[in-house]
């Protein structure tokens, strides 16, 4: 609350955002065209105000502009995804939201993460959604496309969650200071003479071997590493997080085998 009193802009934005989502939710009394457009406007204004209220001023203007474009884009597309009346549009807004998030990843110098997210989510998962929707919507939109159930509690609950996350992020100090990391990365990159103006760093520019102080020999020192290199990511994934990666792989394999096992055989009438 105290924080909101200091940032009235953010509070106003949040209120407008909530009101806008409620107006956008399908199934309210007035289903004329004007209401959703008004709701969209209110939501957009709310998101922009909230972001403007929360955000501070950074040193690099271009980065800031890109960050806010992607952040606002991701949030707005997320809102539109859950409020879209047509499931196909919902899936498309989801895709756009994912793409905006990938833009944020790129800004954080995580190009591999961005590309992998595009391949897996936008390229495969949402295409599969579209596939299913196109198969299922042969006879037009169903009743549950026109009405949202429990709109008010669902919206409020999700915003309580959002508030909890924001508050936690604001209260707890970050694990390592972002600015330190950035400066060190800059120093390293400058020392290694970057080939281009792109923010991606090729593996040749990795800092040379440092004395290993970590328990795991495979892991590189996070703070010293120019962020975004494939080599660092690979070493971290298959060094620090090897167990988690293997566990996830096993889980997927089990799910795969399960899917094959429960699918009907050809003799049982499947195609």
């Amino acid at each position: 609350m105290e924080w909101f009193q200091k940032n009235p802009l953010a509070l106003a934005g949040l209120v407008a955002w909530i009101v806008g989502i409620l107006m956008l939710m399908p199934g309210r009394k007035a289903t004329s065209v004007r209401i959703p457009r008004l709701g969209l406007l209110v939501t957009a204004a709310g998101v922009v105000l909230f972001c403007a209220g929360v955000g501070g001023r950074g040193p690099e203007f271009a980065n800031e502009v890109m960050f806010w474009t992607f952040a606002v884009g991701a949030l707005l597309c997320g809102v539109l995804m859950i409020t879209a009346r047509n499931p196909v549009y919902g899936a498309l807004w989801f895709a756009l939201s994912t793409l905006s998030t990938c833009g944020l990843f790129l800004l954080q110098s995580a190009p591999f993460l961005a590309a992998a997210t595009v391949i897996v989510y936008a390229g495969a998962v949402i295409v599969t959604f579209l596939f299913v929707i196109m198969l299922a919507q042969q006879s037009g939109a169903a009743a549950y496309d026109h009405r949202s159930r429990n709109a008010i509690p669902v919206t409020l609950a999700s915003f309580v969650l959002l508030g909890a996350i924001t508050l936690t992020l604001h209260k707890s100090p970050p694990a390592f200071s972002k600015r330190d990391l950035k400066e060190e990365a800059k120093v390293e990159v400058a020392a290694a003479a970057p080939p281009t103006g792109m923010m991606m760093v090729s593996p040749d520019n990795l800092p040379k071997e440092k004395p290993a102080s970590k328990p795991n020999q495979l892991s590189l020192e996070t703070a010293k590493l120019p962020v975004g290199s494939m080599k660092g990511l690979g070493k971290s994934l298959f060094g620090d997080y090897l167990f988690a990666v293997e566990l996830a792989g096993t889980l997927l394999l089990v799910a795969c085998i399960g899917a094959i096992a429960i699918a009907p055989r050809r003799e049982e009438g499947a195609l």
Partner: peptide, 17 residues
């Protein structure tokens, strides 16, 4: 766009779109 570390993956990502 020269010097992109993930060039090949970028192509697959865009191609999947």
């Amino acid at each position: 766009a020269p010097g992109i570390d993930i060039g090949l993956i970028f192509i697959f990502a865009v191609g999947s779109l």
